[in-house]
Structure formats: structure tokens, C-alpha cells
């Protein structure tokens, strides 16, 4: 009788310890979510998908917190189901951040290229207008001085195109776009000035 009871208790105790040993933190899912977040960071999500990356980081932190909470519970009551779901969600969010970053980066690249090309086109247009104006037969006094100012302005804009191209080459697409747009604005003003001058002197 005594030996049976002792055996029963030993089995009970072993089962309890076995159950305790089975509830382990979801390391595989945690590693997967962390890797997904690292990939998103590598895709420059900080710059091109900051909101999505923030959401992924928050989700991963929340999942880690849930794991901590479960770890602190009595072994028989631990459950990592919720933590696994949270980690899966964090990994999905990290993937979204990565995909958004890649898409936004491509979009920014395209926009930057278009802005630089637009600025270059306007510069070419300004150069053409300048050549036409210079070829004008009517050259009122002061014309040369005004042309010097306009040519100087165009030289300055042309010199700055290199900055936009450098930013593009170093993958600072947002900076390249901003610089190119500023140059395009100035080149457009110059084209307008040259066209007005042509009209004024009836060229």
C-alpha cells in the first residue's frame, strides 16, 4: 500500500515537472521576427517606411514583453500561444515595412530622377533661349550687361546640378529630388526672364 502511494505521488510529481519542461519560450518565432526586422532596417525602412518600421518594432517589443510575462508565471500556467501570435504579427509587420521601404525607395528614386531630368531640360531650354537672344539683331544698350547677369545665373544653376546628381548617386533620393526641384524652379524663372526679354526687344 505504502509503495503504491509513493509510486503514484512520484508519477504525479514527474508529470508536473514534465509539463513544466514542455512550455518553452518560442525562440524560433522570436528569431524569425527579429530577422525580419533586421531585413526591414537593411532596406532603409528607417527613411522610406518609418511608420511601418515603428509599428513592427512596437509589435516585437510587445511580443517580447508577453514572453517575459509568461516566463514569470508558475510553470504549469505558462502559455506562449499569445506570444507566438504576437511574434507572427511582428514578423508580418516587419515584412510590410521592408516591402513598403523597397517600394517607397524605388518611387523616390524615380521621382528624383524625373526631377533631375526636368531641371536639366529646363537648363537646356534656358541655354537655347539664351542662344536665340544672343543671336538677336536688335541689341539695345545695356543688353550685354543684362546678358552677363543672366549667363552668370545659368552658370550657377548648371554648377549646382552636380550636387543633385551626387545626392542621387549616394542614394539620398529625397535630398536629390529636393535640390533638383529647387534648381528647376530657378531655371524656369530664367527661361521666363529670357522669353520676356525676347518679347521686349522684339527678337
Amino acid at each position: 500500500m505504502r509503495s503504491k502511494t509513493t509510486l503514484a505521488l512520484a508519477v504525479l510529481l514527474s508529470s508536473a515537472l514534465l509539463v513544466t519542461g514542455c512550455a518553452k519560450p518560442p525562440q524560433q518565432e522570436l528569431d524569425a521576427a527579429t530577422a525580419a526586422l533586421t531585413e526591414a532596417e537593411g532596406a532603409k525602412a528607417d527613411t522610406y517606411a518609418s511608420a511601418e518600421l515603428g509599428a513592427a518594432r512596437d509589435a516585437l517589443n510587445a511580443a517580447k514583453q508577453e514572453i517575459e510575462t509568461q516566463n514569470n508565471k508558475f510553470a504549469l500556467f505558462r502559455s506562449y500561444k499569445n506570444a507566438i501570435a504576437m511574434l507572427t504579427d511582428a514578423a508580418a509587420k516587419a515584412k510590410t515595412a521592408k516591402d513598403t521601404a523597397v517600394a517607397n525607395k524605388e518611387k523616390a528614386k524615380g521621382e528624383a530622377r524625373a526631377a533631375i531630368d526636368n531641371a536639366k531640360n529646363l537648363i537646356t531650354q534656358a541655354q537655347t533661349e539664351m542662344t536665340t537672344l544672343e543671336g538677336c539683331k536688335r541689341k539695345p544698350k545695356g543688353f550685354a550687361a543684362d546678358m552677363t547677369v543672366l549667363k552668370g545665373n545659368l552658370d550657377g544653376i548648371v554648377a549646382e546640378v552636380a550636387n543633385a546628381e551626387n545626392a542621387f548617386t549616394s542614394e539620398d533620393f529625397l535630398g536629390a529630388k529636393s535640390t533638383a526641384e529647387s534648381l528647376a524652379g530657378r531655371a524656369q524663372t530664367l527661361v521666363t526672364d529670357l522669353q520676356n526679354a525676347k518679347t521686349k526687344i522684339k527678337c
Binding site: T148, V149, K151, G152, N153, L154, D155, G156, I157, A159, E160, S178, T179, S182, L183, R186
Partner: peptide, 21 residues
Amino acid sequence: LSRREQALLQQAEIALDRAQR
């Protein structure tokens, strides 16, 4: 002062504009 200085002024204006942004 000539075209060179005018070009420098234009570059300065562009750089200051960029700095302010």
C-alpha cells in the same frame, strides 16, 4: 564684377535656400 561673380551669387542663393529648408 562679371559673370563669374553672378554665377557665384546664384550658387550662394541656392545653397542658402537648401540650408534653410
